[in-house]
């Protein structure tokens, strides 16, 4: 009995090792490009399954697309794997983590040719270590069944008639939540906390992430939610419903830009560059439609439903260095005000 058990333990330990040895032999024969992306890019409903096969066909390079976490997690993972690097390309690092990305020295700059078709306000990284491939604008979305006259500015949201009517997200755990915090800083500067203090009675709940917050909204819990200008596209495309509409503020909407970069330690630099070029050209339309975001490349033709949503009048952004140096303090003050 004892001997059997010892054998069993050994077997459990040895099998994965044997399998891994076999795996590494396979790898040496066919070099593939390993691409890390956030989960919704890789997902069955995301752009991954649409754009990857086409790239493989065009170039003959095979791609291993890995779901490697969202936003900061992508960076954390590449950092943790520093001594055992796997990724060649990373997709989906938000522009606000530019400072951290550059500091980590994990990526190598590359200026793709397609940059010329990308409007100036999206060039968030002058070193081209991260290139923009996708962007969106944060916006309040309203339920047209409950609201006839939607607010037209951040100030309008302070009106007492919206008592307990807005669903927000926590900037500590949600990038959309962080987007709104930055938005108020971009609009009000040092006086941003006053807006938060005043909006408190109008907030129904502050969710942990966009998914739960938007879920509550579509369930009819509150008539207003912070989301993206493009959110109604989903309802138009897949539910044929125009019940939910986004609001473009004349004073501007905060922009979020998603970047991609080539890992410095990658042995497949040539292939990685091809992939980045493809990402900024032929893949743009599919990415935009599946992600329900805007393409960065101006030559991209989008389906008609994108015309149905209002055009952003002014793109607001904050400087990445400023975000890096002041984020801790903003969050601290925000929590202080919001938990009173």
């Amino acid at each position: 009995m004892e001997k059997h058990l010892i054998l069993l333990v050994l077997a459990v330990l040895v099998v994965p090792l044997a399998l891994s040895a076999q795996g590494s032999q396979e790898k040496a024969e066919t070099p593939t490009l390993t691409v890390y992306a956030y989960d919704s890019f890789v997902s069955e409903w995301g752009p991954g399954p649409l754009v990857i096969p086409e790239f493989e066909e065009q170039t003959g390079i095979s791609v291993n697309l890995v779901s490697a976490g969202n936003g900061g997690e992508l960076l954390s993972r590449v950092e943790l794997e520093k001594h055992n690097p796997r990724a060649d390309v990373v997709i989906g690092i938000p522009h606000e983590l530019l400072h951290e990305t550059l500091q980590s020295q994990l990526f190598v700059p590359y200026k793709p040719q397609a940059m010329q078709d990308i409007p100036e306000f999206l060039h968030f990284d002058p070193t081209h270590t991260l290139v923009p491939f996708n962007y969106g604008n944060f916006a309040f979305v309203y339920d047209s069944q409950q609201v006839q006259h939607p607010p037209q500015s951040l100030d309008d949201l302070l009106d007492p008639k919206w008592n307990r009517s807005i669903i927000l997200m926590d900037p500590r755990t949600s990038s959309v939540g962080m987007g709104l915090l930055e938005w108020t800083i971009a609009v009000y500067g040092d006086r941003y906390l006053e807006w938060w203090e005043d909006v408190k009675p109008n907030v129904l709940t502050i969710a942990d992430g966009w998914s739960s917050g938007y879920g509550l909204f579509t369930q009819g819990e509150a008539p207003l939610v912070i989301s993206y200008t493009t959110s109604p596209v989903y309802h138009l495309l897949y539910e044929e419903s125009d019940r939910f509409k986004s609001i473009v503020f004349p004073a501007g909407n905060m922009a979020v830009i998603e970047g991609a970069g080539i890992v410095a330690s990658s042995p497949h630099q040539e292939e990685a560059r091809k992939f980045i070029e493809y990402l900024l050209t032929d893949a743009q339309r599919d990415i935009a439609v599946a992600n329900i975001m805007y393409p960065v490349n101006q030559t991209t033709e989008l389906p008609e439903v994108f015309q149905a949503i209002p055009h952003v009048q002014k793109n607001l952004t904050l400087d990445a260095d400023r975000i890096n140096s002041e984020r801790e303090q903003w969050l601290r003050e925000w929590v202080e005000v919001m938990s009173r």
Binding site: R172, T205, I206, D208, G209, L216, W334, M338, S339, R340
Partner: peptide, 17 residues
């Protein structure tokens, strides 16, 4: 997740957040 969403906001912050 339950604390933030059903609680209503950051006054219900746990270490996990």
């Amino acid at each position: 997740v339950i604390l933030l969403v059903l609680g209503g906001g950051p006054q219900f912050t746990t270490l996990e957040v």
